[in-house]
Write a protein that binds this DNA or RNA. Structure first.
Length: 810
DNA sequence: CAGTGAGCGAGCTTCCGCTTGACTT
């Protein structure tokens, strides 16, 4: 039995460290926090000193028992959780739960998993920093109080099952505010002038320094250019440099993986987790750009050996963000010698990105020669400017170029042909193109993370979960949206003549962007109205300052909480008792057909439009139609609302049965003979005709036939079908997976029946587990919430629907 | 993959941060 027990947070870390320390040390992982506030509303003594009641989490009981046993046997227990607020608290909880004595407990910290760092840490132990622990307790208690007092107010005043919190509510607000900013944006346009010259057989572009607001001004300018001479008036050569970006943190990795590969933040994190577990990269949840001494040295050696010493530029980066706690290194490859790794294509790509970013960060700046040519126009004071760049030394660009969120066309990286001052240029054409201004871009998951990080809201371990929470609650949807068409004017001066063209362009099309839902807007408005301070973008930053004071011993944690909770709780009580329900009802105007008023509202089943008033008169019942995805009560127009009532419509009759066109949860569809056929994007639900509709029905029949791989005489219900993930068994409405390696051609009825039997046996068994085991139960509970959000009628409405008419008839 | 749109109503929901698995329709 070894004399020393070292406890770290992550099992992968434990494995590595054990190798450094030798046989006298057993290294174990506690898998993060082992205790948390008790589940219910009474975990904090809000009537007294705010003392928290902690419980060992259900899924941690086994590991806690094991650690207890090992701690008892060990001569010395080394608490080696991360050196930040949460890590310090983990050590404190461990010492409490494991009943550790001060005499045989030591607290050690390291910021990097390298042998020298670990050995140095062992040589410099300290005690647990109780002030830092208290700062964590304050953080934890504040978050619980905010979350568990605000959420019930929402249940009462908006809708059941909603949630609010210090982080998520502000994240939603960012998206709501941005959406409104975009909706209120007024487009303006100006004419941009580009001249194209022929210089020794090569084309060169130059732009006018200013833009013209009106077409008339642009036209006048072109008139004046007709027949003019264009001369190089000045040539300026400026050497410039471009520096590499620092190595990845969680947030910058998420941003780059999103921009370069289109990954959502949770995909990125789970791939990175795999890379970490396989020992390919350092820890992936970090806010630090720091690299270990060892890493910098090995990058230097690698770069010198493979690219040449002139490419090496050892560099120590420092984090600018105030909220960073820097418990870990930046994300980097564990060994720079591993240029490539084994793994899935996704793992390889993400590794490549991490590798290149890290190695580039230790490489020389790129040297660029920027040339600016000024071109004068005879008879005019305006000048044209052509810029070009020549890469003199590539430096870090040899391996990595960071991308930006801005997808505007890049004007740089163009080389200019050889030019001389006084040279007269041959004009091909000058084009004046109408360019529109653009509103701020909608957030992607990754750009929202970036903004949250700038505001100091959330932590590397919570960015991805927060983004999925606000989507799960239905506050926000991630979607693609088709752009709209608009026309723009282009004037071209060519061969001394000016032509005018009106062209069309698509704009405002979105891919994987975050849009607020009606409920997201309602909740944001409600919370902003009543809990302004918590919804303030600076709220987290200001409480963080207080937490820092607690950590420095300048403030007592429960005094801080008391000061916050008093006024906060008063507002909660007042709002809960007196505030009006928040809704988003709008009157859109009158229906031209019936003359009745059209409203949009948000009901139990989501946003809907209504024609006519609610009244007791059965004959005068209003008509209802749900809003489509992407439509908001705040912005829907009366025309769009009226369109909603045009569906479902009968397209015509085919094989003696009606074809109906409508829009369902998965988009536009046709219904024929009680079968669904989706209508592709290229067709229009409102306009689709009988010919096209029957064509779609017949296409669907062919693809359904292809989907059927095998049937059995013994049971007509059982079919072998081709699905998205390969062949599977279908029986009635139930689907069953094929065992791994099972070939379709080998499937006999007996084999299939056997598979179904074993699958059926497994199913109720897993449900039993779900009922007993807490962690599984949690998952099951979350799923249920999802269902209620999407299809609430199943839970709530059955009674009402049946009872209401009977009550009325009485 | 429908078209619903109350107010007596049962009882539930919820936070943020640390960590991995288990889980696939």
């Amino acid at each position: 039995m070894s004399k020393n027990l070292v406890i770290v947070e992550s099992p992968a870390k434990a494995k590595t460290i054990e190798k450094f320390l030798g046989s006298d040390y057993t290294v174990k992982s506690c898998f993060g926090h082992i205790r948390d506030l008790a589940k219910g509303d009474d975990a904090i003594n809000v009537k007294g000193d705010f003392s928290p009641r902690y419980e060992v989490s259900e899924d941690k009981k086994a590991i806690v028992a094991e650690l207890k046993k090992l701690a008892k046997e060990a001569d010395m227990v080394w608490l080696a959780s991360d050196e930040d607020r949460e890590g310090e608290a983990i050590s404190w909880h461990l010492s409490e739960v494991l009943n550790l004595k001060e005499s045989n407990t030591k607290r050690i910290v390291f910021h990097e998993i390298t042998k020298p760092a670990i050995l140095k840490a062992i040589d410099n132990p300290r005690g647990i920093n109780k002030n830092l622990v208290d700062a964590q307790q304050a953080r934890r208690v504040l978050d619980r109080l905010v979350g568990f007092e605000l959420s019930p107010v929402l249940w009462k005043k908006v809708k059941s099952n909603l949630s609010a919190g210090r982080v998520q509510s502000v994240a939603v607000r960012l998206i709501v505010d941005r959406e409104r900013e975009i909706n209120q944006f007024t487009y303006s346009s100006a004419f941009r002038l580009i001249a194209r010259f022929n210089v020794g057989g090569k084309q060169m572009e130059a732009e006018l320094g200013k833009r013209f607001e009106t077409e008339a001004e642009a036209k006048l300018f072109l008139d004046n250019c007709t027949g003019a001479n264009f001369t190089i008036k000045n040539l300026e050569v400026k050497p410039t440099e471009k520096s590499p970006a620092p190595p990845f943190t969680t947030s910058t990795l998420q941003q780059e993986a999103s921009r370069k590969m289109g990954y959502g933040v949770s995909i990125t994190m789970s791939i990175a987790q795999k890379l970490y577990e396989n020992g390919f990269i350092t820890y992936m949840r970090t806010d630090s750009v720091n690299l270990s001494e060892l890493a910098i040295e090995s990058a230097k050696n690698y770069i010198s050996a493979n690219f040449g010493p002139q490419y090496s530029r050892p560099m120590r980066y420092t984090t600018k963000n105030d909220s960073a706690q820097e418990a870990h290194e930046a994300i980097r490859p564990t060994y720079f010698e591993n240029v490539e790794i084994e793994g899935t294509p996704q793992e390889k790509r993400l590794y490549d990105l991490i590798y290149k970013r890290a190695i580039a960060s230790q490489m020389a700046k790129a040297q660029i020669e920027k040339t600016v040519a000024t071109i004068s126009i005879s008879g005019l004071s305006e000048q044209l400017v052509a810029t070009g760049e020549v890469l003199k030394f590539d430096g870090f660009l040899k391996v990595y170029l960071e991308s930006t969120d801005d997808d505007q066309e890049d004007e740089s990286s163009k080389m200019l042909p050889p030019l001389a001052i006084g040279e007269e240029l041959v004009l091909n054409q000058i084009q004046a193109t109408q360019k529109y201004t653009r509103p701020s871009a909608r957030y992607t998951e990754a750009s929202l993370v970036k903004r949250l990080e700038e505001l100091g809201i959330g932590r590397p371990s919570t960015y991805a979960p927060t983004i999925s929470t606000i989507q799960k609650r239905g506050y926000v949807v991630k979607e693609d949206r088709d752009g709209k068409e608009r026309s723009f004017i282009q004037l071209t001066l060519e061969k001394q003549a000016i032509s005018r063209e009106e062209k069309a362009e698509k704009f405002a099309s979105e891919k994987s962007k975050l849009f607020p839902s009606d409920i997201g807007m309602i909740v944001t408005d409600f919370l902003s109205k009543h809990f302004e301070s918590i919804m303030d973008y600076g709220f987290t930053a200001s409480v963080e300052e207080e937490f820092d004071k607690i950590a420095r011993g300048q403030l007592v944690w429960n005094k801080m909480i008391e000061k916050f909770y008093g006024p906060f709780h008063a507002v909660v009580t007042n709002t809960s008792e007196n505030a009006e329900r928040q809704n988003a009802e709008r009157n859109l105007g009158l229906d031209p057909e019936s003359g009745k008023t059209i409203y949009v509202k948000v009901g139990r089943y989501g946003p809907y439009a209504q024609i006519g008033e609610n009244s007791d008169d059965e004959k005068e019942k209003p008509r209802y139609a749900s809003l489509r995805t992407g439509q908001l009560t705040e912005t829907i127009t009366i025309e769009e609302a009226l369109d909603l009532f045009k569906l479902p419509r009968v397209v015509g009759s085919f094989e003696g049965k009606d074809i109906k066109a409508a829009i369902g949860r998965f988009g536009p569809y046709l219904m024929h003979d009680s079968k669904f056929i989706s209508i592709p994007k290229t067709d229009d639900v409102f306009g689709i005709d009988l010919v096209r509709a029957t064509e779609l029905i017949e296409d669907k029949r062919v693809s359904d036939a292809n989907k059927l791989l095998k049937v059995f005489e013994e049971d007509a219900e059982i079919k072998i079908l081709q699905g998205r993930w390969g062949p599977y068994i279908g029986k009635g409405k139930e689907n069953y997976r094929l065992p791994k390696g099972q070939k379709v051609e080998d499937l006999t009825y007996e084999v299939v029946a056997g598979i179904i039997e074993t699958e059926e046996k497994n199913k109720p068994a897993s449900k039993k587990v779900a009922a007993k085991k807490a962690p599984v139960k949690k998952v099951a509970a979350k799923r249920r919430v999802l269902v209620t959000l999407e299809e609430p009628k199943k839970l709530a409405f059955k009674k009402g629907v049946v009872k209401k008419p009977t009550a009325k008839k009485k």
